[in-house]
Write a protein that binds this DNA or RNA. Structure first.
Lengths: 168, 168
DNA sequence: TTTTATTTTCATTTTTTTTTGAAAGTTTAA
DNA sequence: TTAAACTTTCAAAAAAAAATGAAAATAAAA
């Protein structure tokens, strides 16, 4: 397969995967494009490569920066901004995990904590089933949370650091 | 908080979480409703509780069955079907992991394998960057795949079985 | 068989999400 | 300053996803 064709397929596949996981298809595609680009690209280049509008490119790039996956670069003597993507898959995975933890896991744990305090009749099956579900999910979410914290700090830890190397 | 209010909040939160992870909000809500229902419900009951149409309820319930999260039940002497949800969070997590692995991980690994075979000039930075990205992602995906396999079989394994108990 | 209860399908409508593009805003340089 | 280069915003349009509901299909009972 030729590079040009392979690049397009990769961008398409990454976009599809993203959309299946609740990430805007275009955002995943811009990310894919920047990941496989050795040099930083301008907004104009992103627009042209992916045939998207200026507004869309601008907002998507900003989102990617918010996710910590892309950084703005300035070239001396040039006025326009360049965008460069982190290329280390391990760091990418970390950033995504961190963001989703912050955006989704933490809020749901907060709600589950509130719901755990529901009061009712212990003999009522509806109450018992509800309470058990919420408690169990809360427990699991708490464990996932702790494990993620541990993994995100794992680089500093000799034991988990060595376990994580298995994934690299 | 009263049970009725807590139930509504739980259903809403579960729906939101689902939609953030690429799962149809209604499907997540139906799942939430069945999870906290001690008894199996009829299509009619699901429709009324969540104010959704018959068609929607029917298709959503079928999807949940496909995901292995809900089962059809028949009560003797009754003509209509009842739907009952698995309540063990651990089993739910397993089923979701299995399905997403099958639906998303396996296909993307297949594509990455194809893309790994791209031919080009080793001195071309565009080629090198592409190849490195694809290879690294492929490696990571392969490791995630292996780890999931291991975890999904872990119940049978004394060592990982005991590690997984930490999550329960 | 015919009737009745129940489930499934799917063309159409509705809702939600995403994209566009032109105007407004900002920054640099002349 | 003023103008040119570039970026951001956001109301409106377009596209995509989800939901509706009535008709068709199916299955059990009379």
């Amino acid at each position: 397969m030729e590079l040009a064709e392979a690049r397009l397929k990769f961008i398409e596949a990454w976009g599809k995967l993203g959309s299946e996981w609740g990430i805007n298809r275009t955002m995943a595609q811009v990310h894919a494009l920047l990941m496989i680009s050795p040099e930083a690209l301008t907004t104009e280049e992103v627009m042209n490569e992916l045939s998207i509008s200026r507004g869309n490119a601008n907002m998507t790039l900003r989102d990617l920066i918010d996710w910590g996956l892309v950084e703005k670069q300035h070239k001396t003597g040039e006025r326009k901004e360049y965008f460069y993507a982190e290329k280390d898959v391990w760091i990418i995975a970390r950033r995504v995990a961190e963001e989703r933890k912050k955006r989704e896991l933490t809020p749901i744990i907060k709600i589950l904590d509130q719901l755990s305090e529901v009061k009712g009749d212990e003999k009522d099956p509806a109450f018992k089933t509800f309470k058990t579900s919420v408690t169990d999910i809360n427990k699991l979410a708490g464990n996932v949370n702790k494990t993620l914290d541990m993994m995100l700090k794992a680089e500093e830890n000799w034991f988990f650091g060595s376990i994580l190397k298995v994934f690299k």
